[in-house]
């Protein structure tokens, strides 16, 4: 039975949701999966809403559009409000609880609350909440190992920003190892 993971990662422009998606599809590719990455954003370069449709599958991907995600990563309140109802039954909703005070209303999905923005600030990784979420997504998906995501990140961080690589990798680890409660 083939499995297709359909991810929706949504937040404000500038939060790095597009980059987070990129890391995940790259990791999927390195793990030998079929992948697609489809952005959707408003006309603003910064501050508008941004979301990314990511597919990771064992088989050829049909439409790259995610309408009913198996996993929603909500990085702000409007994203949760907009997409909560679309998540497939038994799907997963990951929430940056620093920025989203609300609780998920649905009972037929698994929910994970991670104070990603606060964690990032506390650990001196300001602006890397997206990578903390990447770590958590990796854990929840179980499609590829942490090492694969790290490799994907190493290849995705541009040459001139290599000094940022270590902090990106650390953020991923924090997310991967985060335990609620």
């Amino acid at each position: 039975m083939s499995v297709t993971h359909e991810l929706m990662i949504a937040g404000f422009g500038g939060q790095g949701v597009l980059f987070a998606g990129k890391i995940l599809v790259y990791a999927g590719l390195l793990a030998g999966k079929e992948v697609s990455w489809l952005p959707s954003y408003g006309p603003e370069m910064r501050g508008g809403t941004a979301n990314i449709n990511v597919m990771i599958s064992d088989t050829m991907i049909g439409s790259p559009i995610v309408t009913n995600p198996t996993m929603l990563v909500a990085m702000n309140q409007p994203s949760l409000e907009k997409f909560e109802k679309d998540v497939k039954k038994d799907g997963i909703i990951l929430i940056d609880s620093t920025l989203i005070p609300a609780q998920v209303k649905r009972a037929d999905v698994k929910t994970c609350y991670i104070p990603a923005t606060k964690l990032a600030e506390d650990k001196g990784l300001k602006g890397l909440a997206n990578m903390i979420m990447v770590g958590k997504v990796t854990k929840e998906l179980g499609v590829f190992d942490l090492e694969v995501v790290k490799a994907a990140t190493s290849k995705s961080v541009p040459e001139r920003k290599q000094d940022l690589l270590a902090s990106n990798l650390r953020a991923i680890e924090i997310g991967f190892n985060y335990m609620e409660g």
């Binding site: 990129k22 590719l29 079929e34 992948v35 697609s36 990455w37 489809l38 790259p64 559009i65």
Partner: peptide, 9 residues
């Protein structure tokens, strides 16, 4: 626009 923007292997 979608084919232009979508990223695939």
């Amino acid at each position: 626009g979608m084919l232009g923007q979508v990223m695939e292997p």
